[in-house]
Design a protein around this nucleic acid. Sequence first.
DNA 1: AGCACGATTAACT
DNA 2: GTTAATCGTGCTC
Length: 209
Amino acid sequence: MPNRRWGRADFERPTLEVCRALMGQRLVSLTEPGRRLAGRIVEAEAYIGQEDLGCHARSGRTPRNQVMWGPPGHAYVYFTYGKHWMLNLVTEADGFPAAVLLRALQPEEGLESMGKRRAGRPPSQWADGPAKLCQALGLDGNWNGHDLCRAESRLFVEFGPVIPEADVTWGPRVGLNSVPEPWKSIPWRSRIVPARQAEQEGGHGHARR
DNA sequence: AGCACGATTAACT
DNA sequence: GTTAATCGTGCTC
């Protein structure tokens, strides 16, 4: 019996609530025939609307950020720094631009494939960053706009354990160096307490940052 | 058409 | 701790 997948209503909620609820959930990719690539989400950030000056939607609707303005439950994948892809999951109602950036996964399934894509590095460094997790899973711009809620979707979120409140910490979002306050420091990054990550995963591997 | 810079990473001192 | 890499995007001229 496969685990239940996140549906439209799970994404169509306040972004901070989704960011919190994603902790401990499993991101799954079925792009490789007969194989599951999956990892537990252990870190994420909320980007909420035009007023959030750290959010791409600050400059209005553009070709790049248009997916964020669309219906929830879709992937917003963008390119930055000339070489990196980032995966966001669109939240809130259709028409309101918001999303959660997935920042770190704890690799769980398809380790051989992830190891190939992240060759030469230890498992702890396969998906401990927003661009690294995209590389580990082979995600790029082709996934922009992908609907995670369709039954036949090859990319989706699976329900995992509920992480206790005591095991989740919040802090400022990373990399918003020239963004004005309060947006630069507002604590919209959620994380599972590192010491608890290995424990909940059942004894395999470690994800650090 | 030109320009400054980025929701980062890896390498280096 | 600091910095180069690298190019698409959005803004200005």
